[in-house]
Protein backbone atom coordinates (compact mmCIF):
# COMPACT_ATOMS: atom_id res chain seq x y z
CA UNK A 1 0.00 0.00 0.00
CA UNK A 2 1.39 3.41 -0.92
CA UNK A 3 2.20 5.94 1.75
CA UNK A 4 -0.39 8.29 0.25
CA UNK A 5 -3.11 5.70 0.65
CA UNK A 6 -2.01 5.01 4.20
CA UNK A 7 -2.03 8.69 5.05
CA UNK A 8 -5.46 9.00 3.47
CA UNK A 9 -6.77 6.14 5.55
CA UNK A 10 -5.20 7.66 8.64
CA UNK A 11 -6.92 10.96 7.96
CA UNK A 12 -10.25 9.22 7.39
CA UNK A 13 -9.84 7.34 10.64
CA UNK A 14 -9.01 10.53 12.51
CA UNK A 15 -11.99 12.26 10.98
CA UNK A 16 -14.17 9.29 11.87
CA UNK A 17 -13.09 9.50 15.48
CA UNK A 18 -13.69 13.22 15.58
CA UNK A 19 -17.12 13.10 13.99
CA UNK A 20 -18.16 10.08 16.04
CA UNK A 21 -16.92 11.92 19.11
CA UNK A 22 -19.03 14.90 18.15
CA UNK A 23 -22.01 12.61 17.72
CA UNK A 24 -21.47 11.12 21.15
CA UNK A 25 -20.91 14.54 22.58
CA UNK A 26 -24.31 15.82 21.50
CA UNK A 27 -26.57 16.64 24.40
CA UNK A 28 -26.20 14.56 27.56
CA UNK A 29 -29.17 12.25 28.16
CA UNK A 30 -31.90 14.18 29.93
CA UNK A 31 -32.75 13.17 33.50
CA UNK A 32 -35.74 10.96 34.21
CA UNK A 33 -35.33 9.01 31.01
CA UNK A 34 -36.99 5.63 30.50
CA UNK A 35 -35.11 3.70 27.84
CA UNK A 36 -37.17 1.15 25.91
CA UNK A 37 -35.08 -1.82 24.81
CA UNK A 38 -35.81 -3.61 21.55
CA UNK A 39 -36.89 -7.26 21.76
CA UNK A 40 -38.38 -9.80 19.36
CA UNK A 41 -41.78 -9.71 21.03
CA UNK A 42 -42.84 -7.71 24.04
CA UNK A 43 -44.06 -9.72 27.06
CA UNK A 44 -47.27 -9.06 28.99
CA UNK A 45 -45.92 -10.94 31.97
CA UNK A 46 -44.17 -8.72 34.49
CA UNK A 47 -41.97 -11.63 35.59
CA UNK A 48 -40.64 -12.37 32.11
CA UNK A 49 -36.85 -12.51 31.92
CA UNK A 50 -36.91 -10.13 28.93
CA UNK A 51 -37.41 -7.26 31.35
CA UNK A 52 -33.78 -7.65 32.42
CA UNK A 53 -32.86 -6.09 29.08
CA UNK A 54 -34.47 -2.82 30.01
CA UNK A 55 -32.61 -0.28 32.14
CA UNK A 56 -34.57 0.51 35.28
CA UNK A 57 -35.82 4.01 36.04
CA UNK A 58 -36.51 4.65 39.72
CA UNK A 59 -38.78 7.42 40.92
CA UNK A 60 -40.43 8.61 44.10
CA UNK A 61 -43.90 10.08 43.73
CA UNK A 62 -45.44 12.85 45.79
CA UNK A 63 -48.94 13.81 46.83
CA UNK A 64 -50.97 16.19 44.72
CA UNK A 65 -53.01 17.34 47.67
CA UNK A 66 -50.33 19.10 49.62
CA UNK A 67 -46.68 19.88 49.24
CA UNK A 68 -46.26 19.06 52.93
CA UNK A 69 -47.70 15.57 52.58
CA UNK A 70 -45.30 12.63 52.97
CA UNK A 71 -43.80 11.29 49.73
CA UNK A 72 -45.81 8.75 47.77
CA UNK A 73 -44.64 5.27 46.84
CA UNK A 74 -41.34 4.58 45.13
CA UNK A 75 -41.69 3.29 41.56
CA UNK A 76 -39.62 1.25 39.18
CA UNK A 77 -40.18 1.62 35.45
CA UNK A 78 -38.97 -0.50 32.57
CA UNK A 79 -39.90 -0.51 28.89
CA UNK A 80 -39.54 -2.84 25.92
CA UNK A 81 -40.66 -2.59 22.32
CA UNK A 82 -40.76 -4.70 19.21
CA UNK A 83 -41.68 -3.98 15.63
CA UNK A 84 -45.29 -3.21 16.45
CA UNK A 85 -45.84 -2.85 20.19
CA UNK A 86 -44.50 -1.16 23.30
CA UNK A 87 -44.65 -2.60 26.81
CA UNK A 88 -44.18 -0.54 29.96
CA UNK A 89 -43.67 -2.33 33.27
CA UNK A 90 -44.36 -0.32 36.41
CA UNK A 91 -43.73 -1.68 39.90
CA UNK A 92 -44.63 0.33 42.98
CA UNK A 93 -44.99 -0.15 46.69
CA UNK A 94 -48.50 -0.65 47.96
CA UNK A 95 -48.99 -2.40 51.29
CA UNK A 96 -52.56 -3.51 50.46
CA UNK A 97 -54.25 -4.91 47.39
CA UNK A 98 -57.44 -2.92 46.82
CA UNK A 99 -59.70 -4.48 44.23
CA UNK A 100 -63.19 -4.11 45.64
CA UNK A 101 -64.31 -0.72 44.42
CA UNK A 102 -67.97 -0.10 45.15
CA UNK A 103 -68.37 -3.67 46.37
CA UNK A 104 -71.48 -4.73 48.28
CA UNK A 105 -71.08 -6.14 51.79
CA UNK A 106 -73.92 -8.16 53.29
CA UNK A 107 -74.28 -7.70 57.08
CA UNK A 108 -77.01 -10.27 57.48
CA UNK A 109 -79.90 -7.89 56.97
CA UNK A 110 -78.81 -5.28 54.37
CA UNK A 111 -76.14 -4.40 51.88
CA UNK A 112 -73.71 -1.57 52.23
CA UNK A 113 -71.60 -0.25 49.39
CA UNK A 114 -68.00 0.85 49.64
CA UNK A 115 -64.41 0.28 48.72
CA UNK A 116 -61.92 1.84 46.37
CA UNK A 117 -59.23 0.55 44.08
CA UNK A 118 -55.56 0.97 43.19
CA UNK A 119 -54.71 2.75 39.95
CA UNK A 120 -51.89 3.59 37.61
CA UNK A 121 -52.09 6.50 35.17
CA UNK A 122 -49.71 7.37 32.36
CA UNK A 123 -50.11 10.44 30.17
CA UNK A 124 -48.48 11.02 26.79
CA UNK A 125 -48.88 14.25 24.80
CA UNK A 126 -50.50 13.41 21.46
CA UNK A 127 -48.58 16.12 19.60
CA UNK A 128 -45.38 18.11 20.05
CA UNK A 129 -46.13 19.99 23.24
CA UNK A 130 -43.40 22.34 24.41
CA UNK A 131 -44.77 23.02 27.85
CA UNK A 132 -45.58 19.41 28.75
CA UNK A 133 -42.20 18.33 27.38
CA UNK A 134 -40.38 20.66 29.74
CA UNK A 135 -42.66 20.59 32.79
CA UNK A 136 -44.51 17.29 32.56
CA UNK A 137 -47.77 16.99 34.48
CA UNK A 138 -47.12 20.41 36.01
CA UNK A 139 -47.97 21.85 32.59
CA UNK A 140 -51.42 20.32 32.59
CA UNK A 141 -53.01 19.07 35.76
CA UNK A 142 -50.70 20.22 38.52
CA UNK A 143 -50.17 23.85 37.71
CA UNK A 144 -51.10 24.92 41.23
CA UNK A 145 -54.05 26.94 40.00
CA UNK A 146 -56.88 26.63 42.53
CA UNK A 147 -59.35 28.76 40.65
CA UNK A 148 -61.73 26.32 38.91
CA UNK A 149 -62.34 28.92 36.24
CA UNK A 150 -58.77 28.40 35.21
CA UNK A 151 -57.45 25.21 33.77
CA UNK A 152 -56.60 22.54 36.27
CA UNK A 153 -56.58 18.77 35.86
CA UNK A 154 -56.99 19.45 32.17
CA UNK A 155 -55.17 20.51 29.04
CA UNK A 156 -54.33 24.19 28.88
CA UNK A 157 -55.15 24.62 25.22
CA UNK A 158 -57.43 22.95 22.73
CA UNK A 159 -54.35 22.48 20.57
CA UNK A 160 -53.08 19.80 22.93
CA UNK A 161 -54.49 16.46 24.01
CA UNK A 162 -52.96 13.80 26.20
CA UNK A 163 -53.37 10.07 25.77
CA UNK A 164 -54.22 8.60 29.16
CA UNK A 165 -53.67 4.96 30.05
CA UNK A 166 -55.68 4.43 33.19
CA UNK A 167 -55.16 1.05 34.76
CA UNK A 168 -57.66 0.19 37.52
CA UNK A 169 -57.25 -2.80 39.81
CA UNK A 170 -60.99 -3.48 40.03
CA UNK A 171 -62.49 -2.38 36.75
CA UNK A 172 -59.90 -3.01 34.03
CA UNK A 173 -57.19 -5.32 35.38
CA UNK A 174 -59.44 -8.41 35.56
CA UNK A 175 -60.18 -7.97 31.84
CA UNK A 176 -56.48 -7.65 31.05
CA UNK A 177 -56.82 -4.05 29.96
CA UNK A 178 -56.31 -0.46 30.97
CA UNK A 179 -58.88 2.20 30.24
CA UNK A 180 -57.60 4.06 27.20
CA UNK A 181 -58.81 7.64 27.47
CA UNK A 182 -57.59 11.13 26.70
CA UNK A 183 -57.32 14.40 28.52
CA UNK A 184 -58.36 17.66 26.91
CA UNK A 185 -60.05 20.93 27.79
CA UNK A 186 -62.84 20.77 30.30
CA UNK A 187 -66.26 20.46 28.76
CA UNK A 188 -67.61 22.03 31.95
CA UNK A 189 -65.22 24.52 33.52
CA UNK A 190 -66.51 23.69 37.00
CA UNK A 191 -66.05 19.94 36.62
CA UNK A 192 -62.52 18.55 36.64
CA UNK A 193 -63.76 15.19 35.43
CA UNK A 194 -65.12 16.81 32.28
CA UNK A 195 -61.61 17.11 30.90
CA UNK A 196 -61.38 13.30 30.71
CA UNK A 197 -62.75 11.80 27.55
CA UNK A 198 -63.19 8.15 26.66
CA UNK A 199 -61.63 6.81 23.49
CA UNK A 200 -64.09 5.49 20.95
CA UNK A 201 -65.56 2.21 22.14
CA UNK A 202 -67.43 -0.49 20.28
CA UNK A 203 -68.55 -2.62 23.20
CA UNK A 204 -67.62 -3.85 26.65
CA UNK A 205 -66.50 -2.07 29.75
CA UNK A 206 -67.87 -1.99 33.26
CA UNK A 207 -71.51 -2.19 34.22
CA UNK A 208 -72.46 -1.15 37.73
CA UNK A 209 -73.77 -4.15 39.62
CA UNK A 210 -76.73 -2.54 41.31
CA UNK A 211 -80.39 -3.43 41.60
CA UNK A 212 -83.17 -1.13 40.53
CA UNK A 213 -83.73 0.14 44.06
CA UNK A 214 -80.01 0.88 44.31
CA UNK A 215 -79.73 -0.72 47.70
CA UNK A 216 -77.95 -3.91 46.69
CA UNK A 217 -76.30 -5.83 43.90
CA UNK A 218 -78.22 -7.11 40.93
CA UNK A 219 -75.99 -10.14 40.44
CA UNK A 220 -73.62 -12.49 42.17
CA UNK A 221 -70.95 -14.51 40.42
CA UNK A 222 -72.74 -17.73 39.67
CA UNK A 223 -69.68 -19.46 38.24
CA UNK A 224 -66.85 -18.59 40.65
CA UNK A 225 -68.63 -17.75 43.87
CA UNK A 226 -65.56 -16.46 45.74
CA UNK A 227 -64.18 -14.40 42.87
CA UNK A 228 -63.80 -10.66 43.56
CA UNK A 229 -64.99 -10.05 39.99
CA UNK A 230 -67.99 -10.87 37.84
CA UNK A 231 -67.46 -11.18 34.13
CA UNK A 232 -70.28 -10.99 31.64
CA UNK A 233 -71.83 -14.44 31.44
CA UNK A 234 -71.10 -15.26 35.07
CA UNK A 235 -74.06 -13.30 36.45
CA UNK A 236 -76.48 -15.11 38.69
CA UNK A 237 -79.46 -13.90 40.78
CA UNK A 238 -78.88 -12.60 44.28
CA UNK A 239 -80.26 -14.89 46.94
CA UNK A 240 -79.61 -13.29 50.32
CA UNK A 241 -80.57 -16.50 52.09
CA UNK A 242 -77.43 -18.04 50.64
CA UNK A 243 -75.21 -15.21 51.89
CA UNK A 244 -73.46 -15.27 55.22
CA UNK A 245 -72.85 -12.00 57.09
CA UNK A 246 -69.70 -10.31 55.81
CA UNK A 247 -70.08 -11.71 52.30
CA UNK A 248 -68.74 -9.35 49.64
CA UNK A 249 -70.23 -9.07 46.16
CA UNK A 250 -68.34 -7.27 43.36
CA UNK A 251 -69.62 -3.82 42.41
CA UNK A 252 -69.22 -4.27 38.65
CA UNK A 253 -69.91 -6.73 35.88
CA UNK A 254 -66.97 -6.62 33.51
CA UNK A 255 -66.72 -7.17 29.78
CA UNK A 256 -63.47 -6.69 27.83
CA UNK A 257 -63.56 -3.41 25.92
CA UNK A 258 -63.38 -3.45 22.15
CA UNK A 259 -62.56 -0.43 20.05
CA UNK A 260 -60.00 2.29 20.61
CA UNK A 261 -60.76 2.43 24.31
CA UNK A 262 -59.55 -1.15 24.64
CA UNK A 263 -56.20 -0.61 22.92
CA UNK A 264 -54.08 -0.94 26.05
CA UNK A 265 -53.59 -4.48 27.29
CA UNK A 266 -52.56 -4.96 30.88
CA UNK A 267 -51.51 -7.52 33.40
CA UNK A 268 -51.29 -6.49 37.02
CA UNK A 269 -50.25 -8.67 39.93
CA UNK A 270 -50.01 -7.67 43.56
CA UNK A 271 -47.67 -9.57 45.87
CA UNK A 272 -45.54 -8.84 48.93
CA UNK A 273 -46.67 -5.25 49.24
CA UNK A 274 -46.00 -4.36 45.62
CA UNK A 275 -47.95 -4.00 42.39
CA UNK A 276 -46.29 -5.06 39.16
CA UNK A 277 -48.29 -3.87 36.18
CA UNK A 278 -47.41 -4.30 32.52
CA UNK A 279 -49.15 -2.18 29.90
CA UNK A 280 -48.86 -3.16 26.25
CA UNK A 281 -50.09 -1.19 23.27
CA UNK A 282 -49.50 -0.99 19.52
CA UNK A 283 -46.95 1.64 18.58
CA UNK A 284 -49.51 2.97 16.12
CA UNK A 285 -53.13 2.02 16.76
CA UNK A 286 -54.38 3.97 13.76
CA UNK A 287 -56.86 5.74 16.03
CA UNK A 288 -56.86 9.52 16.19
CA UNK A 289 -57.54 9.46 19.91
CA UNK A 290 -54.25 7.67 20.64
CA UNK A 291 -50.65 8.79 20.76
CA UNK A 292 -48.48 7.31 18.02
CA UNK A 293 -45.00 6.11 18.95
CA UNK A 294 -42.41 6.50 16.22
CA UNK A 295 -39.09 5.11 17.45
CA UNK A 296 -36.50 6.55 17.73
CA UNK A 297 -38.42 9.74 18.46
CA UNK A 298 -38.32 10.43 22.22
CA UNK A 299 -41.60 11.31 23.85
CA UNK A 300 -42.39 13.02 27.14
CA UNK A 301 -44.77 11.43 29.60
CA UNK A 302 -46.12 11.72 33.11
CA UNK A 303 -47.06 9.06 35.63
CA UNK A 304 -49.16 8.76 38.77
CA UNK A 305 -50.55 6.05 41.04
CA UNK A 306 -53.45 5.86 43.44
CA UNK A 307 -53.56 3.76 46.57
CA UNK A 308 -57.09 2.66 47.31
CA UNK A 309 -58.62 5.91 46.23
CA UNK A 310 -60.40 7.87 43.56
CA UNK A 311 -58.66 9.14 40.48
CA UNK A 312 -58.12 12.48 42.16
CA UNK A 313 -56.30 10.99 45.17
CA UNK A 314 -53.15 10.18 43.26
CA UNK A 315 -49.45 10.45 43.88
CA UNK A 316 -47.65 11.92 40.91
CA UNK A 317 -44.09 12.20 39.75
CA UNK A 318 -43.79 15.96 39.43
CA UNK A 319 -41.07 16.21 36.80
CA UNK A 320 -41.29 15.40 33.14
CA UNK A 321 -40.28 11.88 32.12
CA UNK A 322 -38.87 10.98 28.74
CA UNK A 323 -39.32 7.72 26.90
CA UNK A 324 -36.43 6.95 24.55
CA UNK A 325 -35.55 3.93 22.44
CA UNK A 326 -32.43 1.85 22.01
Amino acid sequence: MSSTAMKMMGCCFLLALLVAGCAQNSQPPPPNTLVAARVQQVPLDGADSLWERSPELRLVTSSVKSADAPPGPAMSLKALYDGSQIAIRVAWEDPTESNLKNAWTWDGSAFSKGGEEDRLMIHFPMSNDAEFSSKGCAATCHNQEDDPEKWYMAANSEAFRYDQWHWKSTRTNPSGQADDRWLGLRADVLDTESAHYNDAMEAGGEKVNQNERRNGPQYVNAVEKDSPYIFAGQEGPVDTSQLSPGAVIPGYVLTPITGSRGDVFASGAWADGKWVVVLVRDLDTGHDDDVTFTPPKPIAFGIAVTDNGSGYDHQVYGEVLTLTWK
Binding site: A16, V19, A20, E131, S133
Partner: peptide
Protein backbone atom coordinates in the same frame (compact mmCIF):
# COMPACT_ATOMS: atom_id res chain seq x y z
CA UNK B 1 -18.82 8.04 7.42
CA UNK B 2 -21.64 10.57 7.69
CA UNK B 3 -24.21 7.95 6.66
CA UNK B 4 -22.76 5.55 9.23
CA UNK B 5 -22.91 8.14 12.01
CA UNK B 6 -26.42 9.25 11.00
CA UNK B 7 -27.59 5.64 11.02
CA UNK B 8 -26.17 4.90 14.47
CA UNK B 9 -26.85 8.21 16.18
CA UNK B 10 -29.92 9.93 14.83
CA UNK B 11 -29.35 13.67 14.57
CA UNK B 12 -30.50 15.03 17.90
CA UNK B 13 -33.80 16.87 18.14
CA UNK B 14 -34.65 18.06 21.62
CA UNK B 15 -38.18 18.67 22.75
CA UNK B 16 -39.82 21.80 21.34
CA UNK B 17 -38.67 25.14 22.72
CA UNK B 18 -40.45 26.25 25.85
CA UNK B 19 -39.54 29.88 26.57
CA UNK B 20 -41.10 29.53 30.04
Amino acid sequence: LLIFVSWNWRAPLEFPADPT
